[in-house]
Design a protein around this nucleic acid. Structure first.
Lengths: 335, 335
DNA sequence: TTGTATGCGTTATCAA
DNA sequence: TTGATAACGCATACAA
């Protein structure tokens, strides 16, 4: 039989409420009873029943991580697992539990969310959506359910979010390339409707303009999907019209495609840089330089934001900008 | 305010117990009250409180998925996310919830597990360990807590598990290569102490012997880790001693390393096949053939095993063998 | 500082 | 077939 607070109370010769107080470290309790109770707890190997506790104070300390139903890259992009890792690190530190679920079809979206929400199972939600400007953000906002988003949403008011500064990340990258002597730099992106895409393109343009370099249309290509084949296609396209000395891609998979083309054409003097720094990048030929977006930290601070809010820790911000880091490898050549 | 069973009872003019019965579809309840209650439920938009329900019948319908603390490949190997997806599909179908957690340090392992178990939060555990013969398997078995393992454990008695038939998977692969005319086939593995490694090596040997082909020591190399660089090292080693027409690797990352060496040496007539069919394989040059282990299905049936056990659905088996499938791509050449 | 009693939202037992 | 009520394990308002 499970040992309950009653057993501990009996063992320590106190009331259950006293045990409860010791558990929550109430300050108005004498040291000696505190000690006695703690002894009993240890002796009986007592662990509080989370469910009962949850019922009593209508808080479960459970978070739900919502994964995209079928992001094309959820299996190839380590972002998701890394973010989940980061989330769990802070959560565990704060004694929170984490559930996960893959998002459902659009139509029964609300109904499905309510299963989590109305059932009182989770205290907060962490959205790992790839799609931005999601209906669910609006919905959760409307019903005032606590949630946090990884990726800056369009409507910022009242929503917790954490993201990289994608303008700056790309700006810094391009600036570095310019510092290395590159003047003719191409840009390959995908999903141009995403904020992250827009921001990275903006950073690219700003860096060029900031250095008095013209932004040329034939050096910019935005593909449909973040895939290797789209990257190859884009590279072919750009190379047929211009001869850049460097190509930046907003995703490593795109960059892989670029490298594939360059290798096939035996072009060795074009630098390539990707984004996300997925594990495979290191093993490309040449090893691919990439901007690491710090996925684990994104998750960590998302977790922190939502938990701090739930715990009503006062002075908490409502967003974090996570720094990125250019990992320089062989694919960057100085001119 | 949340709407509870009481509100429904009042609305429908019945007792709470009646509502509860309707909820659980009790057969001894008149159709007309059933209808009346259901109307009230719909009208008030009532959703049962999972926590209260959990307390009342000491079952939460929550499963916990335990991920390895830091498997070297947890971020690069899509297995984990795919398995989690599979787990969630069956779980959702059966109205189960899923939590996840990364395994902790060895030392406070038990203590950490007890947080899940003694706290009555989860009904069952799903182990996604890479390490086999894990202490936790013994522990969970000892305390008789329901769990399922992906990957056949050493001690099979009473433990639920799901796995591929790794002997057969490799046997079939090698047999296919032999059918294609290959006679000199090399084997590259890693972590030789794992069951999966042993099984795949066994399958390799059986296929060769079954075809009257001698197993040569200089065609077999077992590396430390499942990494690309280890694959390269192994390929170098083997090529320095022998000249196989095909190389099978027990992991795609190893195979990537093999391909890297072959490309560098401009060898085009050696077939290469990997295992796990990670997304990148398709984009290798040449595209890498690989044995797909059906991760999602592994997860699905793991979920099914543990849930069926919890639901005490009688005639359930205690293990499933999930079929594998050779995905043939350009890296396989007929001799 | 500690104990008593009540409630959290369900399910289950016992009566009716 | 339905209703009243006692659990489930814990937290807390109120008393002492």
């Amino acid at each position: 039989m499970k040992v309950t607070i009653k057993d501990v109370a009996r063992e320590a010769n106190v009331a259950t409420s006293t045990v409860s107080r010791v558990l929550s470290n109430s300050h108005k309790i004498s040291d000696k009873t505190k000690e006695r109770v703690n002894e009993a707890i240890k002796k009986l190997n007592y662990t509080p029943n989370i469910i009962a506790r949850g019922l009593a104070n209508s808080k479960t300390r459970i978070l739900a991580v919502i994964l995209p139903k079928e992001a094309e890259d959820i299996f190839s992009n380590p972002f998701f697992v890394q973010a989940m890792k980061g989330i769990s690190i802070y959560a565990q530190k704060e004694n929170y539990y984490i559930m996960y679920a893959f998002k459902q079809e659009e139509k029964d979206d609300k109904e499905w969310f309510n299963k989590f929400i109305d059932s009182n199972l989770v205290d907060g939600i962490c959205l790992l959506n790839s799609k931005e400007n999601d209906d669910t953000i609006k919905y959760l906002n409307d019903i005032e359910f606590p949630f946090v988003v990884i990726g800056r949403p369009d409507e910022i008011n009242n929503v917790l979010w954490v993201d990289n500064d994608n303008v700056k990340a790309m700006y810094d990258l391009v600036q570095t390339l310019i510092d290395y002597g590159h003047q003719n730099i191409a840009f390959i992106g995908a999903k141009s409707n995403l904020n992250v895409s827009k921001d990275r393109l903006r950073g690219y343009k700003q860096a060029l303009l900031g250095n008095g370099i013209e932004v040329k249309g034939d050096l910019v290509y935005e593909a449909e999907e973040f895939t290797q084949s789209n990257g190859s296609f884009a590279a072919d396209r750009i190379l047929s019209q211009n001869k850049p000395t460097a190509i930046v891609a907003t995703d490593d998979l795109l960059a892989f495609g670029v490298q594939e083309v360059l290798n096939k054409l035996e072009i060795k003097d074009i630098s390539v840089v990707g984004f996300n720094n997925i594990p495979m990048s290191e093993y490309q030929n040449p090893s691919l330089s990439s901007v690491d977006i710090n996925s684990e930290k994104l998750g960590f601070y998302a977790s922190k934001l939502i938990i701090d809010k739930l715990e009503e820790k006062g002075n908490s911000q409502n967003s974090y900008i996570i720094e990125t880091k250019l990992i320089e490898r062989d694919s960057i050549k100085k001119v």
